[in-house]
Amino acid sequence: MTLQTEIQDETPSKLSVQRVSKRFRSGGRVVHALADVSLEVGEGEFVCLVGPSGCGKSTLLNIIAGLESADEGRVLTAGVPITGPGRDRMVMFQEPALFPWLDVLDNVLFGLKLKPGLSRNERIEVAQFYLKLVGLEKFTRAYVHELSGGMKQRVALARALAPNPRVLLMDEPFAALDALTREQLYGDLQRIWQQHRKTIVFVTHNVREAVCLGDRVALFSAHPGSIREQFKVTLPRLRDINSVELARYATEITAALRGGAAAPEEYAI
């Protein structure tokens, strides 16, 4: 296997969430985290799940990741039901979750080591390719604590992309970063997504972030967690989160999120 074939992008997969429900027991009370949620995500589509905290959007992401199981319903990737975590669906968390005992390169290599059919040199080449993609090729031998928050998330992105997944699951990955760093990453993520077409499910509570990144925005409501409305975002890419158009779009969705007037007909699906 050569580097070229290895980093050649896997075809993104279709995701199909079918009538998923999930309950938690917390302090003697049963919390209905997800109630009968269905969602279709197309191949290479970028979908953002937006909602207040506790609305179940992260739970849904964890179920798609295979880290939690649904009480009812099922999730299919490329037509196959999910039974557990898998390299075809990589996850980026809000915390970078990088391993401090490894340097940057070894962190990116972690998942690659479990991928069969690659020699050590090939793995290193693949890791370096993705570190370059996120702009960190000069930091391969740095330790995690030496990096800024934004750099850490870039490493986490490289680590998630390295095993060449078909789906990328992102759970508020930029929430803890400062505004300037975040805006840079919006640009980078859109660019990478356009070059290396992945199916992306992106969880956020920030409507503007969702409008900036997503082809589609699914609006969650809590108690019980369910998808209330979905909006298609047709703004041209690369989108700038500070643009007036985007802000207008976001304002209308926010109004719907607050439970005010329904979103204008033209955007609602």
Binding site: L67, P85, V91, F93, A97, F99, W101, G111
Partner: peptide, 25 residues
């Protein structure tokens, strides 16, 4: 706990999680 979760999403499981994540961590 996020370390083990992250490792599991990268295909690590069972003994591999213990040797390559829990022990060094």
């Amino acid at each position: 706990p996020i370390y083990a979760r992250a490792a599991r999403t990268m295909g690590s499981s069972g003994l591999d999680v213990w040797l390559r994540v829990m022990l060094p961590a």
